[in-house]
Design a protein around this nucleic acid. Sequence first.
DNA 1: AGGGAATACTTGGACATCAAAGTATTTATC
DNA 2: GATAAATACTTTGATGTCCAAGTATTCCCT
Lengths: 164, 164
Amino acid sequence: MAPQFDPIEEAGRNWEANGWAQVDAMLAATSLTRVHQVMLARIDSALAQLDLNFSRFEVLALLSFSREGQLPMGKIGDRLQVHAASVTNTITRLESSGFVKRVPHPDDGRTTLARILDQGRQSASQGAAALADIEFGLTGLDTSEKNQLSATLATYRIANDDFR
Amino acid sequence: MAPQFDPIEEAGRNWEANGWAQVDAMLAATSLTRVHQVMLARIDSALAQLDLNFSRFEVLALLSFSREGQLPMGKIGDRLQVHAASVTNTITRLESSGFVKRVPHPDDGRTTLARILDQGRQSASQGAAALADIEFGLTGLDTSEKNQLSATLATYRIANDDFR
DNA sequence: AGGGAATACTTGGACATCAAAGTATTTATC
DNA sequence: GATAAATACTTTGATGTCCAAGTATTCCCT
């Protein structure tokens, strides 16, 4: 299944041999893509038994942290930095699982609130435990490596105005 | 557009406050997800004018590096570590763009070769230049940060038998 | 108060990915 | 040499994401 050599290293050699520029950037981008893919597969696999995936889990976690147990759809998109259309889709899915329900905003007819239900809180908490068990798919890195990774990624996010 | 505070940092505080375990892993996983999303959007955007996205570009690059300018579909999936069905889809798309064509394997009736065409080589080369221009979506990290990132991610891939 | 602009969400279409089933061909075994 | 197993690719269906357009409601400005 796993290749006998590192396909990313191989790509670096080829890139170099062809005189293509920015080999370091290519290698970092390719590595990031691959690790994201592996990590996400593990995370989703750990959550599958709870009828969750990472996106849906993130929404549940966010709602469970909120003061009122509910948030406007738009706010959810802002916090998780995903498209409004994706939020619509995710909430619909969570609703059909019985984890949240849509509630009209009392003061603003445009706004829909997603409210977490008891079943949703319970699954969020179980999901958090399941993810902690697998270290969020990041087993193989020790704590300092994880923190170094977060720090480097934060540098990127700051430099690119991902937030201010 | 961009939030006023760091949503990931905020998530860390909430996680901590709720006594949920593995905060460091959660932060690393969330950061990785977010950076991957931003980076990929930039990459795809830079390639869009060439009628390419990152997946299709990777296939073209791989084919252009190959000795014969052609590879079996299965080999492509192995090298890029993507599903066979995705390779089928990607090659079909590249074929309709006039970048590659399917050729039957001379010795093995089961195997289909994807062969890069002149137009494909040209677009691969242009794509490489376009990606070099934007540092593969990783502007904001200097070379040593990119290399450090690659190194940490390689640690992960080795520890998880992504290759041997 | 009235009307255009902004905001909030949903819908529909284009893509991409994966898993599982299906088809065709080759290899291995007796 | 026949047949079961393995291999290679495609097809189909379920998901999930984004963009752009559509609908509804509220805000802002004169």
